[in-house]
Write a protein that binds this DNA or RNA. Sequence first.
DNA 1: ATAGGGTTAG
Length: 838
Amino acid sequence: MDGFGWASRASLFKADTRKLQNSPTHAAKLNESARNFQISYKSYLTRISSLCKEGDLRAAVDLVSNLELQGITIGPDVYGELLQGCVYERALSLGQQIHGRILKNGEFIAKNEYIETKLVIFYSKCDESEIANRLFRKLRVQNEFSWAAIMGLKCRIGFNEEALLCFCEMHENGLFLDNFVIPIALKASGSLQWIGFGKAIHGYAVKMGLGGCIFVASSLLDMYGKCGVCGDAKKVFDKIPEKNIVAWNSMIVDFTHNGLYEEAIETFYDMRVEGVEPTQVTLSSFLSASANLSLINEGKQGHALAVLSGLELTNILGSSLINFYSKIGLVEDAELVFGEMLEKDVVTWNLLVSGYVHNGLVDRALGLCRVMQSENLRFDSVTLASIMAAAADSRNLKLGKEGHSFCVRNNLESDVAVASSIVDTYAKCGKLECARRVFHLTIKRDLIMWNTLLAAYAEQGWSGETLKLFYQMQLEGLPPNLISWNSVILGLLNKGEVSKAKDIFLEMQSLGVCPNLVTWTTLISGLAQNGLGDEAFLTFQSMQEAGIKPNSLSINSLLSACTTMASLRHGRAIHGYITRRELSLSTPVLCSLVNMYAKCGSINQAKRIFDMILKKELPIYNAMISGYALHGQAVEALSLFRRLKEECIKPDEITFTCILSACSHAGLVTEGLELFIDMVSNHKIVAQAEHYGCLVSILSRCHNLDEALRLILAMPFEPDAFIFGSLLAACREHPDVELKERLFERLLKLEPDNSGNYVALSNAYSAAGMWDEASKVRDLMKERGLKKTPGHSLIQIGNETHVFFAGDKSHSKTKGIYKMLALLRIEMQVTRCIPVIS
DNA sequence: ATAGGGTTAG
């Protein structure tokens, strides 16, 4: 028994025919019946067609079954309509049932050209590649429609070359390449970025008089945009007399995809002037452009417009809004949109995750990832790239390793973006060897990946490795971009090779690469860190002459340059610059100002800035407490610490480092110990090496060496150079020579690549009065290519604070600032001497 | 015919 009652339908039909033949008014009745049949068949066809268009396929099929039961022969046109209905709805299984009926009804229907073509279209639209191709190849007549269907299919499933081969074959077979196949061929050319092929089609279309077709024109726009030639796209766009919404959208999308955000926004406004209503497509691109230019008002306008136009908050629109809000830093608004969205996919979730990472909210990003897992959403490569960025950002090696192994288990590490983020994470966590290994294991490396490793080497000051990599990438046919050049400059400056860095700076310009704000800032802070403060300021002037405006980050680096140089004069100049230009006084800038004044010796000015700030955040407090610590004003530091607690601001580990160091300088043993306990037990902060270092220093300074040694033994990790340094400083006058020697031995065994250890060792020797050894350590450090950090000291003589700068010259002459200070201590009766190692 | 996401430098 078949489901459609074929057998009963056939017998009914036979009976009806017999009745008609036996009737006396046979001829008349036959004629009338035929006419009625004609009328009813036509009306049925119309009804079926409209049912199919409305999407009520079931009703259409039922109607056809009814007709068949009435014994009416169903023609190809009806089956065609049904198949078209299945095409609209992508109803594969129903279409296959109809295909079955067609085959059972015999060759008359099945071999009809219209039906054969419709079947190819149906299977193509349902992405049934194999069936569609088989049917297509068996066709007796391959017409424009079936070619278009098969090309569309190949294009959709990414077989763009094959689609274009079909296009050529169609042409060779003498078929007219019409305005249905041309858009498909253009789409394939665009996806392949075959600009030559696309242009040839453009020429053909114009010659054949299809240039005016809006479908062809929009496809041309899309193709030129995908090939990265927005100029040509714009030319096509301008020639369209009656632009529809798709044309406008395509133009805006082209600009956005090619980074021409200003142009995208301008086109959007042109469209508004023309009175064309925006769609989801328009607004998502507009929002993307606004996000990339940080145009807060424009993006908000876009959001308002979407609401006013009554657009549904779909995945696409919602995602664009989340992207916009998180890129401009309004994370809460991004969260609101996320909460309002009814349907969310992995892109939506990823956007919020990366939004959190971008705004430094690593914990929230990871929390969201956990929610994603509980909702059974699969992490994809984009999720992992964000997670790894979070690991890199927070220097979380454990998370980095977990993420890396997840990528390996799920075959995500072959993705370049993911691989780059893994390299970056290992590099930022100090695992350069791992970073290098992942880099070399990655087969397809892009520019970003090269730049990631380049930046890692540069950060370490491995200028030789940096340069080698820089030339190697060019040998492999990858031209460096501005970021690559900037890293090379940074690498040289971090190594102290100032003149080579300046050579590279000139070389890049002679090759037509224009330095940007990052280049200038790198150069300025590099010069300052290498003790060339005046040159740094001259370079700042050149930067302004080149028309580059500083942002808050570069202002900060200038201020830290002043701090490194211990130049109050330059610091004041920058402060004046900020005031004159009315630059925004963001929290980081204010911190740097407080820090600069404190480290340049003017604690009073630092306090004035501090008092000026109405809403004081934790970093501001930290900066001020650190300033007091530096000036040995432990009482003030402690009172500020109390005020912080009164204002219900939670101190962090930096706060404790500062306040403990203040106690250490002032020799406040009880307070120091209490603070340490407060930190560990009340604030649940895990004590780091610096905290133990301060404690050791506090104990050592009051000659409680035994207690200090006990503390070191109880520490949960290996003591570092700073701790040994504190101990050595304390036991300078200790009679136990053997103890000193043992400590020195331990110090020498510490990790050799860490420049901090050398500095501490050299300081320890100096503090112990062993000038020659201190000098030897410094030389050894230089020999091994480690970054040399010149220090400066604040010396309080009477009521005045003086800054002494240990540049290269004074260092070689006096064998270190500590010797100079020791001399000063005798000659000038220094009341307090606070060395600062930057 | 047009549509949203990730990775690099101070």
